[in-house]
Design a binder for these strands. Structure first.
Lengths: 131, 131
DNA sequence: CGTTAATGATACTCAAATAGTATCATTAAT
DNA sequence: ATTAATGATACTATTTGAGTATCATTAACG
């Protein structure tokens, strides 16, 4: 029952690293040791971050990644949505899903609000906070 | 990234059902339709609840399960620990695990306290509340 | 120019966790 | 004896998460 997956974990590490460095471009090869993950896997994560607009990338020799946004404004909640599609306390709370008990369910609204609070707490933590 | 597994989900439904009925013994056959789950699977869950002391069981014809505790005092947090071994926001926060960054990690204490708050919120919800 | 060092995209494999089934043993009412 | 129940446990299947591999593209460097 883990709430944050590895992608988010490694992404945070990488972003924090970049926030500290503030180099014009950091290649994956220059991050994987500190992040403690294999090159290919980290690359895949960085590519997701690029597509989601968290980082810029420069291709070719001398290239790499750099922060596209102010680290003080990159919130954990955003990484969670971008890299793992949010959080659901159970199948029912988030999606409008089934279960038949649906309308009678007293648990659902409670879980939904807990989920909301959890996301708020994640939103209160930025990359800058962790750098 | 689901936080509550099916066991907990079905367990809640079954316990709520029993709290409403308050019969001396409800057999699995008398619950599976309302809980919306297969007999064998529900049985497995009820057996876990029995071992964990949430319900009593009576074997043999005319037997079944009954609440062993006041439904106003059966908390979601307890079901979560009994049926899915708690919640971890990530691998690092709960266990003392690895990751090397360990001592330098600014995220860990924050996740730990979020985890605590989440469990408090789950502890505030009882079976009675949902019945 | 060609080599090298980088990312982009995507398909694939492997492992772990969840979910669910099946079976045999035991118990007690009828 | 039969039937209706739980106890225990082994097994299977499905889904999700984690990680690899590969080929294409781009740009600096010599």
């Amino acid at each position: 029952m883990k709430v944050l997956n590895k992608d988010v974990d490694y992404a945070v590490r990488a972003l924090v690293l970049m926030a500290r460095n503030d180099k014009p471009a950091t290649p994956v090869a220059g991050m994987r040791a500190e992040v403690r993950v294999s090159g290919p896997f980290l690359r895949k994560i960085m590519q997701k971050l690029q597509r989601a607009g968290f980082v810029h990338s420069v291709k070719g020799r001398g290239g790499g990644f750099s922060l596209a946004r102010d680290p003080g404004n990159i919130r954990l909640s955003e990484l969670v949505s971008a890299l793992q599609g949010g959080i659901k306390l159970n199948d029912c709370a988030s999606e409008g899903k089934l279960c038949g008990l649906h309308s009678a369910c007293k648990l659902r609204p409670r879980l939904a609000s807990m989920e909301g609070r959890l996301l708020e707490e994640l939103a209160a933590i930025t990359v800058k906070d962790l750098a």
